[in-house]
């Protein structure tokens, strides 16, 4: 299936959880915050959130800023 992640098209296997997707892409799940289809997903729900075709993901992390 196809996802839009941080504005870019990405392919992904069916029945993948958010946690599996993040770990599979080398993302430190403790350091990020995720928005799925414009709704914030809390870290506790990463493992139970199953991704669907056409989902739009924003994966963000804290960086330096003023």
């Amino acid at each position: 299936m196809q996802l839009t992640v941080n504005g870019q098209m990405q392919l992904c296997n069916d029945d993948t959880t958010l946690l599996e997707y993040l770990q599979g892409n080398g993302v430190d799940v403790k350091a990020v915050v995720v928005e799925l289809n414009r709704t914030v997903v809390t870290a506790d729900d990463f493992g139970t959130t199953v991704l669907n075709d056409g989902d739009v993901l924003e994966i963000l992390q804290f960086v330096g800023g003023g």
């Binding site: 504005g7 892409n25 992390q61 804290f62 330096g64 800023g65 003023g66």
Partner: peptide
């Protein structure tokens, strides 16, 4: 202060 940015999965920050 801190900022939020999209994760770049290709670069380890």
């Amino acid at each position: 202060t801190v900022a939020l940015r999209r994760v770049d999965t290709n670069a380890a920050t």
